[in-house]
Amino acid sequence: MVRAVAILSLAVVMSEVTCANSAGVKGDFEYGQYLAAECVTCHSTVGLDKGIPAIIGWEEASFISVINAYKSKELENPAMQTIAGRLDDEQIASLALYFASLPEEN
């Protein structure tokens, strides 16, 4: 039951992502690197996954949809909701571009 509802919610998220993509917002690597400094106080840059998940080497589209899900409060963590809440499409795309470029070392 939970799953069915969840899939429904996911469909909404996915259609939002499609919109963002068709709007053609492009990320800027250097901006992404700057913005990422805020993230790496919590998230490891070498893929350590202890208490806070690793976020490097993701496919950009997935990264964007997850951040949007925190932004829309569909995903629950209040710390991440606060962080994602003020990111606009360009900033999210830039972060996705930057984190996708970090090699997974372990």
């Binding site: 799953r3 969840a6 080497g57 993701w58 997850v66 995903l75 963590n77 470029s101 997974e104």
Partner: peptide, 27 residues
């Protein structure tokens, strides 16, 4: 709205983690 935790969400999303593409920072 139904809330998901990140594990449920990732499962739904399928394989979220792609191979990391190395790109050089351009300062």
């Amino acid at each position: 709205m139904t809330k998901l935790n990140r594990r449920q969400f990732s499962t739904l999303l399928g394989s979220t983690v792609a191979a990391g593409a190395l790109s050089m920072p351009n300062i």
